[in-house]
Every structure is written in structure tokens, then in C-alpha cells.
Amino acid sequence: MKQIDAIELLVEKFLDGRTTNAEERVLYAWFRSNDVPEEWEYLREMFAWYEEGMAESTMQITQPAKYVSLRRVVRWVGGVAAAVIIGIVAWLSVGTSSSNSVYYEGYIVENGIRYDNIEDIEGDIEAMMNRADQIEDMANDLLAWADI
């Protein structure tokens, strides 16, 4: 493994709060004395700050949020994408079942004008179906009373 790969792993470990004191000293020393890639310049400043404050400070160090490894980004994006896909599938399945509306072939004719956009008339049709269900209940009562 190249040294820079090992350092990258240590940086990730540091940001996760899992490094030992010895590992952190390795990071401080490396960033202090080596030519770091341009995109890691801010890490040099960060570790320098930590190194200066380590001996005296007892404050809990909060992990800087600025550096995020590509691997973590990929993992995060993948997780979000999976959640979005699951959400879409769940929404579509609910949407599908409700779009197989029980009032599929419906229309209304009012004063000679026909309305058959189910989205516009759904409420009206549903009210009619509710009335029909109540009437059917009454009819069933009649049939039961007549013993048919």
C-alpha cells in the first residue's frame, strides 16, 4: 500500500474519532513535513492546529466536517439513492392501487353536457356509489325479510 493511501485511511479514521494517540501523532508528523496534495492543504492546517492544542487543551475536539473522502461520499450517495428508489417504488405501488379506481368507467351528464374526466367527477361518483351501497343494504334487508 502506498504511503499516501495509508495516510488517507488514517485521516478517515481520525475523522471517525477512532484513531489512537500514536496514530494521530503519525498524522501530525506527516502533514507537517511532507508535500501534501493541494486538495489536502486545509488538512495540513487542521492537523497543525490540533498538534498545537493537543498538549494543553482538555477540550473535546469536534471532528471537522470539511473533509469527506470519496468513499464516504459514494456510500452516502448510494444510501440516499436507495432510500429514494424505495420511496418511489412504495409511492408508485400505493398510487397504482388507488389509480385502479373502483369507479373506473364513470361519467356525468348534466343539462346535456357530458363530463367524463374521472379526476373531476370522482367525488360526485363516489357519493353516488355510497348512496347505492346504502340502497343495496336496504334491499338485502328486504330480501332477508321476504326470505328470498
Binding site: 392501487s97 385502479n100 373502483v102 369507479y103 373506473y104 368507467e105 364513470g106 361519467y107 356525468i108 351528464v109 348534466e110 343539462n111 346535456g112 353536457i113 360526485d124 361518483i125 353516488m128 356509489m129 348512496r131 347505492a132 343495496e136
Partner: peptide
């Protein structure tokens, strides 16, 4: 249907959401 009359006609088919079969046909 007459546009002169104050008449509203509604017609719809109720289907079983699982099978798609017609449960009832209602005209009002």
C-alpha cells in the same frame, strides 16, 4: 339527454381493486 331539463345523470362501474372484475354497475 335534454339541455332544457334540470336533469343530472350519473353512471359508473364499481370494480374489485384486486381482480378488476365489475362488482356493480350504477346509474342514477
Amino acid at each position: 339527454p335534454s339541455s332544457k331539463r334540470d336533469v343530472v345523470l350519473r353512471s359508473a362501474v364499481k370494480r374489485d381493486p384486486d381482480t378488476g372484475e365489475i362488482v356493480k354497475r350504477v346509474t342514477e
